[in-house]
Computed example of a mutant assay.
Amino acid sequence: MTKDLSGQHGVHRQWGRFGTWGRHRHDWYTSQTKAEGALTDLVKQKLARGYLLKLPQPNG
């Protein structure tokens, strides 16, 4: 999630083939709660379609 200078909260999505810039999209919301809800719904939709979560790996 991200926040802009006017106080809106956003969800940034990026997809595409590995090795390319792919596509991206920003969805803006008036509150952090709404943005978190939208992100949660998006994750639920992707998991229902068979996507898997990939957790960030620590550097080292």
Rank of each mutant, 00 (worst) to 15 (best):
G22W: 00
L5H: 10
G10N: 04
G37P: 01
L55T: 10
P58S: 11
P58L: 11
D27V: 13
Q57I: 09
A38I: 01
D41V: 05
L55R: 09
A35D: 01
S6Q: 09
L42A: 15
R13E: 11
T30D: 15
D27I: 07
G16D: 02
P56W: 01
G19S: 08
E36Y: 09
Q45N: 08
D4K: 03
L53C: 07
N59Y: 11
L55K: 10
H12G: 06
L47M: 07
T20E: 12
D4C: 00
K44V: 11
L39G: 02
G60F: 08
M1D: 04
H24Y: 13
R23F: 01
Q8R: 15
A38P: 03
L53N: 07
W15N: 10
E36I: 08
R17N: 14
Q57H: 09
V43K: 14
T2H: 06
T33I: 12
T2L: 06
L42R: 15
K44P: 05
L47W: 04
Q45D: 14
P58E: 14
E36M: 10
D4Y: 01
G60R: 07
H26N: 14
R17M: 13
Q8W: 08
K3H: 02
W15E: 12
G16N: 04
D27Y: 05
R49Q: 15
Y51P: 01
S6R: 11
Y29I: 00
G50V: 02
M1Q: 07
G22K: 06
A48K: 13
L5F: 08
T2W: 00
L39N: 06
P56H: 03
